[in-house]
Nucleic acid binder design. Structure first.
Length: 132
RNA sequence: UAAGCAAGCCGUUCUAUCGCUCCUGUUCACAUAGGAGAGGAAAGUCCGGGCAACACAGAGCAUCCUGCUUCCUAACGGGAAGGAUUCCGAUGCAAAUCGGGAGCCGGAAAGUGCCACAGAAAAUAAACUACCUCGAUUUAUUGGGGAAAAGGUGAAAACGUGAGGUAAGAGCUCACGGCUUAGUAUGGCGACAUGCUUCGCGGUAAACCCCAGGAGUUGAAAGACCAAAUAAACUGACGCUAAAGGCCUGCUCGGUCAAUGUCAGAGGGUAGGUCGUUAGAGCCUUAUAGCAAUGUAAGGCCUAGAUCAAUGAUAGAAAUCCUGAUUUUUCAAGAUACAGAACCCGGCUUACAGGCUUGCUUUUUUC
């Protein structure tokens, strides 16, 4: 359950291009999220985590934030994310850290819970819209 | 004993749960067991090499880099030892000796240029005050000449001191001394040192320049290989004739070509993957040569390998530091630096909480 294997990461250049060209996005401080539903692959969600070099000059800081986000995603995904993805489709997801400073793990955890709720709402609205 | 400086070394530890990357074993597979998993700077990308591709007859010019000597090294702009210069300290009347530092240490006597402000003058000399001298006169002014000693200016004023010399002066001459060129003798592998003879006496080479030595360009996004899918073109096979077309032939039949269709192939090399790529100028121990950098020999060890990029998160305990309270050992809160491998090595430079070791200097105490 609490895994984070290679297959769950978004590595393909083509998929990334597709996500940023035709995907939707919203902002929930300190994250910005891009997402796109595509046809099914081997996993329900493929995720991409980014921390901009412009805001954090030192590699140590960027690594720390990326590792925290990854850990939060790993612990929360099965509870908050997977049940809402319908079978036969995969969600491409990009999480960008836009905060200016490094926050505590607990705060980031709280924020990300809100993030999932927000994301689910948007997704449901989108699916409903398509059906009409 | 305390403080400061320099050099070297270390640079949080343990447990539990849940993960990540690689390797090995088992398994058809799903899985599962075991092992390994950031640094002294991994950083800056400043030098030097390996490796790779491309370029390259030979010679010259330009450009750039290096610049005391010898040694070490794969190589270096790095290091070691030494020389000269210079700074600090100690001893000493002084000369000097000893100890500890410092650095873009070839040439200004090949040539050219430049030297702010101030000052008379910043370099073939030059004359503001003052000095000497020859005139002119209105007798305190003016003109010519000599002179670089004195004044003041400046970062720097034609080597310093003394004597001779002179109208007054001047390395103009002499003595002693300083720096320096060339020659020579001795010592040293050499830089260089010491002596003698001799030439000369502002600075600047990070201004041009001269001398000696050296440099091909680009970097692992190098480069080598495998190779879906798709489109057009190519090749082959099959299929096809209802009509039209080219050729054999003026016509008919027949043959053939082309086109359309289906299938296959080759090519190129996109997506993606493999190698390069972690066994190396490697690490550890011992012996040995050397003042040392370092070399040699023997034995042992295998010690990160990701590719959008692993090495983490949470909880608990311990250690250290600091602040406050208490008061002389307890409690509470906080902190635990700089910083994250990306082809690999050798250096240099910069960052760094806290701790340890060694050396030197100063201070205090005791003998």
């Amino acid at each position: 359950m609490y895994t984070f294997k290679k297959e769950e990461r978004l590595c393909s250049q083509k998929l990334i291009d597709e996500l940023f060209h035709s995907g939707s996005s919203f902002l929930l401080y300190p994250y910005r999220v891009n997402y796109l539903l595509v046809n099914s692959m081997e996993v329900p969600v493929k995720v991409l985590i980014q921390v901009p070099k412009r805001k954090f000059k030192r590699a140590v800081d960027r690594n720390l934030i990326k590792r925290r986000i990854r850990e939060i995603y790993r612990l929360q995904k099965s509870q908050h994310l997977y049940p809402f993805i319908s079978e036969g489709s995969t969600l491409l997801l990009s999480i960008v850290y836009v905060g200016k400073e490094i926050h505590d793990f607990s705060l980031m955890e709280e924020k990300s819970k809100k993030l999932w709720l927000n994301l689910m709402k948007d997704l449901q609205a989108q699916i409903g819209g398509n059906a009409e």
